[in-house]
Each structure stands twice: as structure tokens, then as C-alpha cells.
Amino acid sequence: MTTGRDATARNRWIAVSAVAFGTFLLVTAEQLPIGLLTPVGSALSISEGAAGLMVTAPSIVAALAAPLVPVLVGKINRRLLLVALMGLMTLANLASALAPNYPLLITARVLVGVAIGGFWAIAGGLAVRLVPAPLVPRATAIIFGGVGAANVFGVPLGTLVGGLASWRIAFGALSVLALVVLVALVAVLPPLAADQPVGLRRLADQFRNQGVRIGILATFLIVTGHFAAYTFISPVLQDLSGIDGQLVGPLLFGFGLAGVVGNFIAGATVAKRLHRTVLIIAAALGVTVLLYPIAGVTVAGGMTLLVVWGLVYGGVSTSLQTWMIRSAPQAIEEASALWVAVFNLSIGLGALAGGTIVDALPLEGILWLAGVLLLLAGLAVWTARRNANLR
């Protein structure tokens, strides 16, 4: 016979799963246009460069929205806020599907960015309010498992739908899925009252916290370094490793699968060895990327390093979010908002820096830059070795 306590625990894990589905949808929505640039550009008579703003715009807006949305909404119940943001995601993707011209499409993508930044800022630290403290790392891993799942299934499937049907159908499907998530959130999320409003002063106060400062710096270096190199992984695999272009898609699928595995490995290790886990991730990423110009010049070497890269990077979101939670246990929402802002901003900066270097230097140059940034992140993490909250 199921007891009331068992039912409550089961309902909380269902709520965690619903939030994970939400993060899956957010990342899919953010990155889906990557595979649709050509058809969108052709349909709206714009260049692929202009179409690329469908990715850049929501990333930048999400970086701004992450700290601002919690500030602007004050003490509104977080359950209601998450539902409202998913409602915005539903409407924004519907507007994207129906947009008759480029300005309206970009406007819709800006609204997607607001939903991404606001939802992620709240959802990132939600595990501590849904499950008991010892289970928070596992719940956080499930929530961020949605990120890895989006890279493995969301973007490729959305691109496939866009290719078989149309890019408008792909965005429309996202709108339908967002509505499904909205209904799920209404059904399973418990009330999540805000203890106190997030203010600009409380956000600024987080920079006095050594753990938060190092977590923000490590996030900036890791994510910037990763995306500086990963944005150009296709030419790296083809030109450096000699891999046939037709194999790039399946290999990136393998990268995503390895990332999902890495996410849950990190979720299992951060509970006991948080500092060591983050340090190993930063160092292993740096070494893997730096090895590419040396050991990745063969097909076998390039494939092996790509899988290792995916496995290690898969643990980044879970481990760094846990770092922020441990660093600021009394200000989780504020620390999470800053972290999400830096994470999204670093995606854009990494791609921009990578493009600048690739245009000016040989392809290996971007790998050297990324490797150095990742090792610097490891050095920053190492300086927090005496912080008792992060052990």
C-alpha cells in the first residue's frame, strides 16, 4: 500500500521531470535555427548571416533576462512564474512559425530569449525546493539532463522535421510541446512561494562571495572556451582529422549521447566531491582540446577525442549549478540568475571569438585558445580548494 509520504516523494520527482522537460524544450528552441538557416533565409529572402541572428538574439536576451526577470517579478509565486514563462515560450514559437517577415521573426525570437533566461534562472536552483537535501545533486542532474537531451534529440529531430516538412512546422511543433510542458507544470508543480524578492542589491552582493565569484569566472572561461572551439567542430573533424563530411552528423549525435552520460556521472560525484569534480572537468576539457592538433590528426584520434570531449562537457551544467547552490545556500535564486546570465553570454562570446580567430589564424589556433581558457578555468577552481562549502 502506498503511503502519503511515498506519494508526495513520487510527485516531487514527477515535478523534477517536468522541469527537465522544460529545460529540454528551452535548449531545443534556442538552438533549433542552427539547422534551419538555409530554408529560413530562402523563404524570407535574407542572407544566412542575417538568419543566424535567430540564434544570437535569444542567447543575448536570455543573458539579460536571467537576472532581470527575477528582479522585475518581485515575490510572485515561482510556480506561477514558470507557467507564465512557458506560456510565453508557447506563443513566441507560434509567432515564429507564422511570422510573415524577418522583423517579426526576430521579435518572436527575442521573446523566446526572455522565456529561456527567466525560466532557466528559476529552474536551475529548483531542486533544493523539490527534493530532500541529500538528493539535490541527483535532481539537478535530471533537470540539466534536459540540456544534453536537447543536443542529442531535440535539435536533430527539429532539423529533420524542418527538412521533411518546413521550418514553420518545426517551430509550430515547438509551440505544441511548450503547451504540453505548460500543462504538466500546472499539474505537478507545488506552490513555490518566494521568501523574499530578488533585488539588484542582492544580486550585486553575491560578488562578495568567493565561491560565487570563482563559479562565475569558471563558467565564463569554460563555456567561452568550449563554444569557441565547438562552434567550428565540423571543419576541425573534416580538415584536421580527415573525417568524411557525411560522418559529422552521426559523430555529433555520439557527442551528445556521451554528454548525457557525463551529466549523470557528474550528478553522482558532485554530492561527495564537488570541488574535485569541477576541477577534473575543467582540466580534462583543456587537455582534450589541446590534444586535438597532436592526437586528433587521424580519423581514430579525432573520433576518440570527440567522444571524450562530449563525456566531460556533459558534466559542466550540473556541476557548476551545484557549485553555485553550495556557494550561496541562502541566495540560490540570485546566484543561479547570475550564473545563467554568464552562461548564455559566454555562448555568444565564445562563438564570436572563435570566428574571429578562425578567420585570422590556422584552424589549430582556435583549439589552442580554447585549451588555454579551459586550463585557466581549472586554475580558478583550484584556488577554492579550502572553501568548506565546495568540498
Rank of each mutant, 00 (worst) to 15 (best):
R78G: 04
L192M: 14
L352Q: 12
G4R: 13
T322E: 13
L338F: 06
L104W: 08
G310V: 00
L182N: 00
W323P: 05
I294M: 14
A388E: 15
L182I: 15
I34Q: 05
R326C: 09
A57K: 11
R129P: 02
I143E: 00
A360T: 10
G354D: 13
E364Q: 11
G41H: 04
L80R: 06
V308Q: 12
Q246E: 14
P103A: 04
L37S: 07
A295H: 09
L91Q: 06
P137R: 04
I214C: 04
V188W: 13
S336W: 02
T159Q: 10
F232N: 03
V340R: 04
A204T: 12
G286F: 00
W368S: 05
V147I: 09
G348T: 15
G355P: 02
I46W: 05
L37C: 09
I143S: 01
G302N: 03
A341K: 01
L237G: 02
G259A: 13
A95S: 10
V136I: 08
L25Q: 02
T288W: 00
V307K: 10
I46K: 06
V83D: 05
A9W: 05
A194V: 11
V340P: 01
I122A: 10
Y292L: 14
G124E: 13
G22M: 04
T298R: 08
P67G: 08
V299T: 10
I60F: 11
V198K: 04
V312C: 06
V223N: 08
V299H: 07
V16H: 01
V110N: 05
A271Q: 07
V186L: 12
